[in-house]
Design a protein around this nucleic acid. Structure first.
Lengths: 334, 334
DNA sequence: TTCTATTTAGAAAAGCTTTTCAAAGCGATT
DNA sequence: AATCGCTTTGAAAAGCTTTTCTAAATAGAA
C-alpha cells in the first residue's frame, strides 16, 4: 500500500494538516515539527496522491497532444519542443497518435475529458466540426499547431505556408529553372495543401511561368505515395527540370523515383523539400528545403495553451513563425 | 463548471447512487429511470471524474513510457505498438523523452509516481541502480523493452542481440567478404552494445577471420557520430570491403561518409544495418539490415506490463523476439 | 500578573465517485 | 390477510488531500 498523508502524520506525531502545511507552506510550521515531518516523508517516500489533489484543484497539470502520425519525424520534433515547454511550465504530457482516424481521434478526446487534461494541442490535422464540437462540448481548451481554422475562432501557431511555398518556388526560378512541377498534399484532408499550391502558383505567375500551373500531383503524407505521384508527374511532364515537394518525405520519394529512372539529382532535376527534418541532412543527396522551426512550433504551442489556460485568452490568435530556406545538395542552377 | 453526478441525478430526479448504477451496472436499475438518467447524461455531456474514480479504484489506467530519444525512428515504432496495445487493454499512455539524462529520467519517475501511473515501460536505456531503486521505492511495477538487466530480476522483451549480430556478419561473410569492420554502440551507456560485438566476434571466429576482431569503432546513437566513426574506421583499415552497423542510422552515416569519399556502396563496400526503420527502405541505396519487430516489441511490452499488473508476475521473465535479415541494396557479393 | 496580539496546530468540511447496507416496495404464497 | 422473498432505491461511508475556521499556546506589553 502506498503511504498516505495519514501515515506520515502518525510517524511524525502530528496532525495531517501539519503535514500538508509542511508541503505547501513550510514556514507556517515550527522548525522542530517541520523537520520531523520531512524525515517521515523521506522515510516513507511519501508522494501526495494526485487524485486527491486533482479533486481539490480541479486541475490535472497534464496536457494532451493529438498528432496524426508518430512515425513522421516532423511530429517527433514537435513533441520534443512541446515536452520541453511542458517541463518548464510544470505540466505532464499525454501524447496520442490518431493515424488521422476520426473515430480514434474522437475517442482520444473522450479519454482526455475523462482524465481531465487541462488543455490539448491539436497538431497538423484539419479541425473537423466533429472535433471542434466535441472539444468545446467537453469544455476542453485547445490550440492548433501547424494548422488553423477558418471556420472557428481557435488559437493557432504555424508557418506561413503560402509565403514559404512561394519562396521555395522563387528559389527554383532564380536558379534558372523554367519547367517546374510540384508534389502537393491531397487537399481533402490537409490544412497546408491549398496555401502551398497557392504559393507555387503565385511565384510562377510573378515570373511569367503560368504554363507550369497545372503540373501538380498529389500524395498522401507518405514516401511511397510521393514515389507514385512522381511517376505520374514525370510521365505527364517529362520536360521538368525542377520539382517543389511540400514535405521532405515527398522529396525523398521523388528523388528515389528519379534515381530508379536513372535521372540525376541535382544533375538533371533539382528537388526542393519542405520541413527540414533531422533526416534531411542525412539523405543522399542532402536535401535543399524550406526549414520549419519544428521544435519551436511545439514549444510555442504549449506556451500558447498555457497562456490560454491561465489568462483565459490569448494575445495573438493566429500566430505565424518564420521559415527559412536551407540550401544543400538536391538543387542546382539550370 | 463541469457537471457532476449530482447534476445528473437532479436532472433525472433520482439519487446519485442510481446514476452511478446506470453507468456501472445498468441492469440493476429499472428501465424507466435508466432511460431518464441516460438522457440526462447525454444532455449534460457528463463524464465521470477520473480523480474521484482513481481515489476509489487506486488505479489510473495510465501507463508510463520512458524513451531515450523521440527523434529516433526506432522509438516511434515502439510507441506506436505500445499505444495500440494500450487501446486494446484500456490504458492511456504517458510518454516521456529522457534524452538519456539521469536527472531528467529520475524526475519523470517522480512525475509518474505523483500521477499514479499503474506501471511503466522503460525503453532501451541501461537500467542504472538509481532508476531501479527509485522505481521499486515508489512501488511502480515496470518492464524493460529493448533492454534487460543482469543485476536485477526485471521482466524484459527484446531481440537476441548477439544472435542478430552474428547473423548479420555471417551474411556478409557468406557474400564473400573477408575484410569486415563494425560501427558499434559505445559500451558505457548501452545495453545492446556488448552483445552485438560478441555476435560480430563469434561469426568472425567461426569462419577463421579473427584478424577483423579489432576493426570496430564506436558511436553514440546518432548519424553524425557514425559518420565520424566511419572516418576513423576507414582511416585505420582502408582494406575493408564490408561493414556491420548496429543501427540503420549508423549505416546511413557510414554510407554518407563513403559517398563523400567517393567510395561506392555497394559497389566497393557493402553495408548492413540493424533495426529496419521505416526510413531504411527510403534511403539511397535502400538498406540491407537486420529487421527488429519494432512495433511488436512495443506492443508486447505493454501486454507484459499488463500481465504484471493484473497477475502480479510474468510468465516468462526475459522474452526474446525474432529478428530477420532483410536484403536490399546496400550489400553485394564480393 | 494579566491581558492582548500573534503564531502554530488540529478538527472538520469539501471535492466526486463507488459501494455497502438498510429500507422500501411489490408480488406471490400460504 | 399476513408473511416471505426478491427487486429496486437511497443514505452514508470511504478514499486522500487542501483549506478554512477555531482553539490553543506563546510572546510581549501594560
Amino acid at each position: 500500500m502506498k503511504p498516505t498523508i495519514r501515515d506520515v502524520a502518525k510517524m511524525a506525531g502530528v496532525s495531517i494538516s501539519t503535514v500538508s502545511r509542511v508541503m505547501n507552506a513550510p514556514d507556517t510550521v515550527v522548525e522542530s515539527k517541520r523537520s520531523r515531518v520531512m524525515e517521515a516523508i523521506e522515510a516513507l517516500k511519501y508522494q501526495p496522491n494526485a487524485f486527491a489533489r486533482g479533486l481539490i484543484y480541479k486541475k490535472s497539470f497534464t496536457l494532451g497532444l493529438l498528432i496524426p502520425d508518430i512515425e513522421n519525424l516532423y511530429f517527433a520534433g514537435v513533441i520534443r519542443g512541446m515536452q520541453d515547454a511542458c517541463i518548464k511550465l510544470g505540466y505532464s504530457l499525454m501524447i496520442c497518435n490518431t493515424d488521422r482516424d476520426k473515430e480514434r481521434t474522437l475517442s482520444y478526446i473522450d479519454t482526455f475529458h475523462e482524465k481531465q487534461v487541462d488543455g490539448v494541442v491539436f497538431a497538423s490535422d484539419v479541425l473537423y466540426p466533429e472535433y471542434y464540437e466535441k472539444l468545446v462540448g467537453c469544455r476542453i481548451p485547445f490550440v492548433l499547431v501547424s494548422s488553423h481554422s477558418d471556420e472557428y475562432e481557435v488559437a493557432s501557431v504555424e508557418v506561413d505556408d503560402e509565403k514559404a511555398a512561394y519562396d521555395a518556388v522563387k528559389f527554383l526560378i532564380e536558379l534558372g529553372h523554367q519547367e517546374i512541377g510540384m508534389i502537393g498534399f491531397n487537399h481533402d484532408n490537409s490544412v497546408s495543401g491549398p496555401p502551398r499550391v497557392a504559393g507555387f502558383v503565385r511565384a510562377l505567375k510573378e515570373f511569367g511561368l503560368e504554363r507550369n500551373v497545372e503540373k501538380v500531383k498529389y500524395a498522401n503524407h507518405r514516401f511511397e505515395q510521393a514515389y507514385q505521384a512522381s511517376h505520374e508527374l514525370f510521365s505527364d511532364y517529362p520536360e521538368l527540370t525542377a520539382v517543389f515537394c511540400v514535405a521532405d518525405e515527398f522529396a525523398m520519394g521523388t528523388i528515389s523515383y528519379l534515381k530508379d529512372r536513372n535521372i540525376l539529382v541535382p544533375g538533371q532535376v533539382s528537388v526542393i523539400g519542405f520541413d527540414n527534418l533531422r533526416m534531411s541532412g542525412m539523405f543522399i543527396p542532402k536535401l535543399t528545403t524550406i526549414a520549419q522551426p519544428i521544435y519551436q512550433l511545439g514549444y510555442r504551442a504549449a506556451e500558447k495553451l498555457h497562456e490560454l489556460l491561465t489568462t483565459g485568452s490569448v494575445a495573438v490568435m493566429k500566430e505565424k513563425m518564420e521559415h527559412k530556406l536551407v540550401v544543400r545538395e538536391s538543387s542546382r542552377e539550370k
